[in-house]
């Protein structure tokens, strides 16, 4: 997967976004996830069932009513769309390593994929592959600009 001059191609397999409360935005940067996963993961290695995977981190204070977690799969277009909440208070207070919290949220998203019963797609292998990306020493810093 190529990243030319630090610019990701428009058409790719893995997309990452976030629903982030403005107060905490300065403490958030998901871009290393975008680059690392685009560089290391090829969804077709795990089967034909998933062509595109959209994932959103939700970082909203407690009591949020609009931006809620979800998980959808479009069998016709072979697209999955998952959003997982990251504990806002813990992230803000940095009670746990923030990157670790984000990694766990992303892996939780893959767990939710498993519940969608996507045909012809090895979710376990995908999960394992992503876990290996996150296990690499200094992976996040490598992709920070």
């Amino acid at each position: 997967m190529t990243i030319a001059n630090g610019i990701l191609p428009q058409d790719r397999q893995i997309y990452i976004s976030g629903r982030i409360w403005h107060d905490i935005l300065p403490k958030v940067d998901f871009s290393p996830f975008l680059y690392a996963l685009h560089d290391s993961i090829n969804l077709s290695d795990f089967g034909k069932g998933l062509q595109r995977y959209y994932f959103s981190f939700i970082l909203m204070p407690e009591g949020e009513q609009i931006n809620l977690p979800y998980a959808h799969y479009d069998a016709e277009r072979r697209i999955a769309d998952v959003a997982v909440s990251v504990p806002y208070g813990d992230y803000e207070e940095k009670t746990t390593n923030r990157i670790l919290m984000l990694e766990n949220a992303y892996l939780q998203g893959i767990d939710r994929l498993a519940a969608l019963n996507i045909p012809e797609f090895d979710v376990k292998a995908f999960y394992q592959n992503v876990k290996e990306v996150f296990a690499a020493e200094g992976w996040y810093g490598k992709w920070l600009d």
């Binding site: 997309y15 976004s17 629903r19 982030i20 403005h22 935005l25 958030v28 931006n67 769309d81």
Partner: peptide
């Protein structure tokens, strides 16, 4: 905003 598409990709949705 299905599939994370807010009209373009690679965007954060930031409630203000």
């Amino acid at each position: 905003y299905p599939a994370g598409n807010f009209g373009a990709m690679d965007l954060y949705y930031v409630p203000q």
